[in-house]
Amino acid sequence: MPTEPDDDLVLTLRVNGDRRRLLIPANRTLLNLLRQDLGLTGSKHGCDVGDCGACTVLVNGAPRLSCITLAAEAQDAELLTVEGVAVGGALHPIQAAFHEQVAAQCGYCTPGFVMALKALFDERPDPTDAELNEVLGANICRCTGYTKILAAARQARERMNGRST
């Protein structure tokens, strides 16, 4: 007997440490799951087709564009969104650096940049400038320009490695 495909599925996952269990339609994107089902609107809806990076989240530590990821891919996964980056009310060094360097104007792209950099720093605590540039090249900012964003990324790197800036 052929296996019948599922129109809906029960998704179990952890979002920013909290266990969640939801019934969702099979065509739900991870971005819509976050924004509509879970009310986590930090991840942004930019282009919706994988071009801009505003919707970047971490799935089991790896960066993913949630607008072009099926929610089904997050079954049993550990999800981290920008809402879960600050620990105990204190900004993460990446967030603090964006704030101090004024690396946001409208701020729409900022959560995506923070998450893409978080993925990099988690993997390579002291990345080179070339590695920072490669990751910043994955995200589009339409207003600040990249100078201040790069400055913030460098400041975060220096602070997280115990060097003063």
Binding site: N27, H45, Q75
Partner: peptide, 21 residues
């Protein structure tokens, strides 16, 4: 927003299951 059309999903674990599907 660009909505995805409606579809159902299958989640095989083995190559042979995927080929059968």
């Amino acid at each position: 927003m660009l909505p995805l059309p409606t579809f159902s999903v299958l989640s095989p674990r083995a190559v042979s299951d995927a080929a059968q599907m």
